[in-house]
Design a protein around this nucleic acid. Structure first.
Lengths: 154, 154
DNA sequence: CTTGAAACCGTCCGGGG
DNA sequence: CCCCGGACGGTTTCAAG
């Protein structure tokens, strides 16, 4: 069970990953040392997994985003698809899902041509059929989800 | 056109959002002040949009992730769906997509019951029908995408 | 891009509730 | 157990060349 205070700390760091301990301390109403300990503990427990910069991929040579749903062709094949696909840098996220398809991966590429090539690579390396949904625009993404009060898990 | 050096900086900060300027400087082979200027410029240009802590949502009271595809019921309705849905904190990302459906939103909730309630809210507030794909596990997510050499956009 | 200097911050103590 | 305050060394930040 996480304390309300830890949830607050996680929330602040989700909103500003580079927030100093000094700022963080006064935002949550603790001393610098106290938040320092708590943040380290949250990192150790894996509640805070890592820190990252959110980038504008359009300006970084990958303006085209798509969701690709994967269906294994051989029903008896081993399901190490995530590992097989992890070598492809264009694949940003990989989800195992319930539904018609088995996996959904999110990809970022530079052009339709690159997408075509990537899909071919995915099909051959993983032995799957694909269904692709192209993203036209991203109104918002990776918003910091406020922690539900009193609902924090174990 | 971004320089190779800026792309490297963005890449390092995507991998470690709290990386100090000192570390960053030696990783990209510049002085501390030089990287400092470049980072500030990247932030100003929006290449670096924000910094965030990646959290374990399972430990934070939202163990259930799902993708919800939205189809407007009234074809003549205004498409301010993203704004309508932005008030719901469970919605983490919102994508306008090409395909059978118009939008895909990614949601995080605490339980199937909460998901059911959220779907009802989405349908009524936005006037859409929904199709939901439940995430069973997340092998990886939000990986730092290496910048393609020499392909960096304008 | 570099230097340099001042303000700020991360980190590690000891001590107290 | 958790919290505070102090102190040191490293870091951020800015102006000027």
């Amino acid at each position: 069970m996480l304390e309300e205070l830890d949830a607050r700390i996680a929330e602040v760091l989700a909103a500003d990953g580079r927030c100093s301990f000094t700022d963080l301390a006064e935002k949550v109403g603790l001393s610098v040392s106290a938040v320092h300990q708590r943040v380290r503990r949250l990192e150790k427990r894996g509640v805070i997994q890592r820190y990252t910069a959110v980038l504008d991929h359009e300006q970084l040579g990958r303006p085209l985003t798509a969701f690709v749903s994967l269906t294994p062709i051989d029903p008896a094949a081993p399901d190490d698809y995530p590992q097989l696909l992890a070598v492809l840098p264009e694949i940003e996220s990989c989800y195992s899902v319930a539904g018609v398809e088995s996996y959904i991966v999110k990809v970022r590429v530079g052009s339709p041509t690159e997408l075509e090539a990537l899909l071919a690579t995915i099909r051959t390396t993983a032995g799957v059929s694909t269904r692709t949904t192209v993203v036209l625009s991203t109104p918002y993404e990776q918003r910091a989800v406020p922690c539900p009060p009193g609902t924090t898990g174990s």
